[in-house]
Simulated assay, not measured.
Amino acid sequence: MTGKTHIIGGIAASLAYAYFSGSDPVILTGAGIIGALLPDICHGGSKIGKQLPIISKIINLIFGHRSFTHSILFLVIIAFLMKTFLPYETVTAGLIVGMVSHYILDMGTRSGIQLFFPIDFRVRFPLTTKTGSMAENVIFSVLALVSFYYGYHALSFYL
């Protein structure tokens, strides 16, 4: 999936989580966007990889793409670090929700993800799409509609 699809996926997931949990949608969504981009730190051409090229190259050399940073292990480590060093539940929740949205979207691609790293087994959905395809554009559009729906309802947090 492209960066824009991961971003809208993080927004949609964060706003839906805010709606159901009653959390602050602005903080949750900001953290969700970062979480939606974070797993691609292992890819130098990604939005986050371009911002942190040295870290991206090191992670890619050690682990490759869509392995460690796309795993449950990475998710647990990030959650632990967030709870330890930045104990704001809404920020942690947004980051984790964004990461999970990224994982789900990448499971919809042909190469899938190594969800159970270090076990060399890739997880993907039975129906997959190619990055940048018309199907991805449809997914993007649906996620945009979901974002508008939950964004509208999440505004009740401020009313």
Rank of each mutant, 00 (worst) to 15 (best):
G9Q: 03
I55F: 12
D106K: 03
T109S: 12
F116A: 09
G32W: 11
H102P: 02
I58M: 13
F117C: 05
R110L: 10
F68L: 15
L105D: 02
S23P: 00
T131I: 08
E136V: 10
F85E: 04
L86W: 13
H70G: 11
I7K: 03
G94A: 10
K57L: 15
I33E: 02
S21I: 07
L145Q: 00
G30N: 02
H6R: 04
A16G: 12
S21P: 05
Y150R: 05
F117R: 06
A135N: 09
L145N: 00
D120I: 12
T90H: 08
P118R: 09
Y149V: 13
S23G: 00
G49V: 12
V91H: 06
E136R: 10
L75G: 11
H43E: 14
A93F: 08
V76M: 14
E89Q: 14
G3L: 08
L145E: 00
I54T: 12
I113A: 04
I11K: 06
L127K: 15
I48M: 11
I77G: 02
I11S: 05
K83Q: 13
E136G: 11
A144V: 15
A13L: 09
A13N: 01
I8A: 03
G32N: 07
G9D: 04
I55D: 00
E89Y: 14
G22Y: 02
